[in-house]
Amino acid sequence: MDFDWTTFVLEIINFLILVWILKRFLYQPVLGIITRRRAGIEKTLADAKRIETEASELKRKNERYLAEWEAEKEVAQAKLSAELATLRENKLVELEAHLNEEAARRRVLDERNRKDFERLCEEKGIAQGVTFTSKLLTRLASKELEQQLFSVLIEDLQNIREQDRHAVIEAAAEPELYVKVQSAFVLENEQQEVLSRLLNEITDRTLPIEFLVHSELISGLQIDIGPWILHANLRDELKVFSGVLRHAK
């Protein structure tokens, strides 16, 4: 247990120097690097916190935007629904009007078809009546009936109106005209002469007359003086009769 004062003093000095050495080369560098690392970590944490705050803010904004968009969407949907309802109502009104118009047109068309059908039936009835009458008159046709029709023709020619007489004269004025007289039965010579003389008197000239037999006339005569035709036979009377019936409707 010897105590050496030199060693004692030198140890104190050595220790103080060692404190300085370790402080200079160990504690300060290591604590500095630890402090810088802690600062970096704290900065990172602060950045993370800031980013988290910003993200929260963005999230809150997004949620607000979503809520606003949802509200706008509901308003737009309600508006669209109202517009669709109005449009549907208008379309229904238009459709109803169109249906009514179509029904009216259909009624008019049906009425026209019905009238056409009635007219067709009437024409058919008239045609059947004419046929029936024609067949009946064909069975009743005879020389005596034609004689009577000839008398009626002569009487009509004798009592011809002045206006018709001028028309006959104009028709007979054409050059190289000849008169064609058709009858259902063969005319006797006396009848031909009477008729020729009467026609010459009316036209005040001598006309070439050709007498023909045309059985389709049923009974009676037909005189063709150019464009002017005088009917006095059953066939043409039936035609006139049926035409009168048709026009009488």
Partner: peptide, 23 residues
Amino acid sequence: PFGITSVVVTTWGIMLVLGVSCW
């Protein structure tokens, strides 16, 4: 007049090793 003992020399050695190592 001061005698440097082996203890002081050992301490210097420790100081040297620690200083150089830390550096």
